[in-house]
C-alpha cells in the first residue's frame, strides 16, 4: 500500500484492522488496531512491552488517548466521511496539548482537497482513498501560502507577521 509521508509517496505496510473482537488475540504483523481494543486490553498490552498503532475515531476522547502516548508508534485518525471534521481537533490536541511526536496518519475518506487542513492540524501521513490518484493528491498538500491563523504547524498568525514587518 502507498501512503503520503513526509511529502513523498512511499510504500508502507501498516494495515488497519477494523474487525477485531475486543477479547480476541492481537493479530501479528504491522497492524493498526482500534483504540477500543487498546482500551479493553490495555494492561495486558502494556505489560507485553509492545508498542502498537491505534486507530482513533471521532467518538473517542482525546484525553484518554493521550494517557498512553508512549505506547503508540503510530496514531491513525479516522475520517469515516471527509465531511466529519472531529479528527482535526484530535490531531491538534495530540500535537499541541499532549506533545505527541510520533506519526499521525489520516485514514478513511481521505481526499486531496482536505490534505492541507489535515497537515496544518498536525497529521503527517495520509492514506489517500484507494480509488484516487495519490500523486495528484500529493500536489495538493501545498495548499495556501498564507495562513491567517496558528495551528499545529506552528504557523505564526498573519497578524504576528504583520507586526514584525
Amino acid at each position: 500500500m502507498r501512503v503520503i509521508k513526509d511529502n513523498h509517496v512511499v510504500e508502507d505496510n501498516w494495515e488497519r484492522v477494523d474487525e477485531l473482537e475486543n477479547d480476541g488475540p492481537l493479530p501479528a504483523g504491522q497492524v493498526i488496531i482500534p483504540f477500543s481494543y487498546w482500551r479493553d486490553n490495555r494492561e495486558q498490552l502494556i505489560s507485553s512491552g509492545k508498542t502498537v498503532a491505534v486507530c482513533v475515531n471521532g467518538d473517542d476522547e482525546t484525553d484518554e488517548v493521550a494517557r498512553d502516548l508512549e505506547h503508540f508508534e503510530l496514531i491513525a485518525l479516522d475520517f469515516p466521511k471527509f465531511t466529519d471534521g472531529r479528527s482535526y481537533s484530535h490531531a491538534r490536541l495530540l500535537r499541541e496539548r499532549f506533545g505527541y511526536e510520533g506519526e499521525i496518519r489520516a485514514v478513511g475518506d481521505v481526499l486531496q482537497d482536505q490534505l492541507f487542513y489535515m497537515q496544518r492540524c498536525g497529521i503527517d501521513s495520509f492514506q489517500v482513498r484507494e480509488d484516487k490518484d495519490i500523486n495528484k493528491a500529493l500536489g495538493a498538500l501545498k495548499g495556501f501560502s498564507v495562513k491567517y491563523q496558528t495551528a499545529a504547524d506552528g504557523a505564526l498568525p498573519v497578524y504576528r507577521l504583520r507586526g514584525s514587518a
Binding site: Y88, R120, K147, Q149
Partner: peptide, 13 residues
C-alpha cells in the same frame, strides 16, 4: 473574518 478563513480545524463542522 481573517481568523476563520480556511481555519484548518473548523472547516468541516
Amino acid at each position: 473574518r481573517q481568523w476563520s478563513t480556511f481555519h484548518p480545524e473548523f472547516s468541516f463542522l
